[in-house]
Amino acid sequence: MTTKNLGDLQAMFAEALASPKSIAREGEWPTRGEASFTGSARLSPIEQLDVYREQFWLRHVACLAEDFPTLQAFVGEARFEAIVAGYLAAHPPVHFMLRHLGSDLARFLEASNDESLVVDIARVEWAFVEAFDAADAPPLDARAVAEIPEDAWSTARIILHPSLQRLRLAHPTHTMRAQHREKVPVVRPEEAATRVVVYRRDFLLYAEEMEALPFDMLERLAGGQPLGEAGDALADATGRREEVESRIGEWFTRWSALGWITRVDVSV
């Protein structure tokens, strides 16, 4: 056998495992199995390969069910499995960590023209996955903040906690996730433009719904805009300069208390 042949055998696994349904009696698979595998006293050659195919699907469905439990509960097991089959066909696993398996599920559902509510459930649940093991960051050093010269604030960049996930949703689906976790009936919410921040503090995960104005400010800061520039741009975009200027201190205080702000960079 050459490495090419080893490659052919391994490629055969990839092809076989991609089938959501048994290949034991499917097309040329029995013949192909016969050519490569011995079979056993109890399993034909292709039935041997089919064991791996079945395990592939059980493992990947279980992984996505673990990361998207509300979605699975909402759509039901049968539809969830159909979603997974379509998703894995379009986005087969290409990362060595199963943790990344669901990274494109919300986009896949959106591209499949699935109901926007379903897309929003997936987006919220994936945000929790991302927040769970995002990098750690020390809390904001109040003394360092107090020492920042007043004229440095306008060009300062606000560094947010790496776990912070910002979501613009068409439905408040974070409430569905909370209901599912609390094992109470999941209520289908009305469509409503919703802004949610998912974040981690002291290793616990939270979702906080936000007003449009502070959310937009947070988005600008997360995008790297200096504080003054972000405030000005927000004021210009919304025509609510007075409100922006009067509330920015309140936002900073609250976001710091929640652990969302970890550092103020005045080096620029």
Binding site: Q10, A14, E15, R59, H60, P93, F96, L98
Partner: peptide, 9 residues
Amino acid sequence: KASGLDLHD
């Protein structure tokens, strides 16, 4: 891995 995929088995 095979054919560019991570088969997780």
